[in-house]
């Protein structure tokens, strides 16, 4: 009899009440830097509003939203993950596009030049797991290029891949162009033609139960100011 009471108390303590002033945004890990900046801009433009973020793998976030997580906005890295929560959200719109880029550690110690290096046995390669959007996109790229990659690890999200590159643990990885840009000088990006074949659409949508502030944040992301920030971060904007 005690357990449910305790559990209820714990849940109550942990989740903030939807007071209409706080917007909770669940966003793909690749949006971390640009959305953090946009959140600050949004708060500046709307005194009294607060934005809090939960960044993570899109599929993990979709899973959490499916289980009733208290999100107001969901910004995903793939239409497929948005599809998973179709019942929970209102009219998703594509607000950004991202493309893959080869990431190598600073100085490119293994001398990677293109996608073909991903098939070399001696190169240490990290990719996203097939089940997360960056992994699915990578799969398409390799199919288009006719290359069989030989990865050493399939990471659970794009930031984990980037960490391995940053620490020099791998010689090359496929990540989003925006991730390379966010990593600064530690990571070098190498573009390739097949990237055009797997351009990632980023959909955003307010949840059906979201407060008006949530819809307001979505509007802000697709506004002129939002588009400028996204472009600066390396995204293509439709």
């Amino acid at each position: 009899m005690l357990a449910p009471v305790l559990a209820a108390a714990l849940v109550g303590a942990c989740s903030s009440a939807p007071d209409g002033t706080t917007v909770t945004v669940y966003a793909a890990a690749s949006l971390t830097e640009v959305f953090t900046g946009l959140g600050a801009d949004f708060q500046a433009a709307n005194p009294g509003a607060r934005v809090s973020f939960n960044f993570g793998g899109s599929s993990a976030l979709a899973q959490q939203i499916g289980q009733g997580a208290p999100a107001d906005v969901f910004a995903s890295a793939s239409p497929a993950t948005m599809e998973q929560v179709a019942a929970e959200v209102d009219r998703p719109v594509t607000f950004a596009r991202n493309r893959l880029e080869i990431a190598v550690p600073g100085g490119n110690p293994a001398g990677v030049t293109g996608l073909a290096d991903f098939g070399r046995a001696e190169a240490r390669i990290a990719l996203c797991a097939e089940r997360v959007p960056c992994g699915a996109a990578a799969g398409e790229v390799f199919r288009a290029a006719g290359i069989t990659p030989r990865p050493d690890t399939l990471e659970q999200d794009v930031k984990a891949v980037l960490t391995k590159v940053r620490l020099g643990e791998v010689d090359a990885a496929l990540v989003y162009r925006t991730d390379v840009r966010a990593a600064g000088g530690e990571v070098e990006g190498i573009g390739f033609a097949e990237a055009e074949r797997a351009v990632n659409d980023y959909p955003i949508a307010p949840l059906k139960r979201a407060s008006p502030r949530g819809r307001q944040f979505v509007d802000f992301v697709v506004s002129q100011a939002g588009r400028a920030a996204l472009t600066a971060a390396g995204f293509d904007v439709p």
């Binding site: 793998g57 599929s59 993990a60 979709a62 899973q63 990290a126 797991a129 089940r131 997360v132 990865p151 050493d152 690890t153 399939l154 990471e155 659970q156 984990a160 391995k164």
Partner: peptide, 24 residues
């Protein structure tokens, strides 16, 4: 998953498999 990464048959132990499966 942080140190050894994740590759089936090589480093994907049960807990890693569970976590990755959970998402999809």
């Amino acid at each position: 998953i942080t140190f050894a990464g994740n590759f089936p048959g090589e480093t994907t132990t049960m807990p890693l498999a569970v976590y990755l499966a959970l998402e999809t």
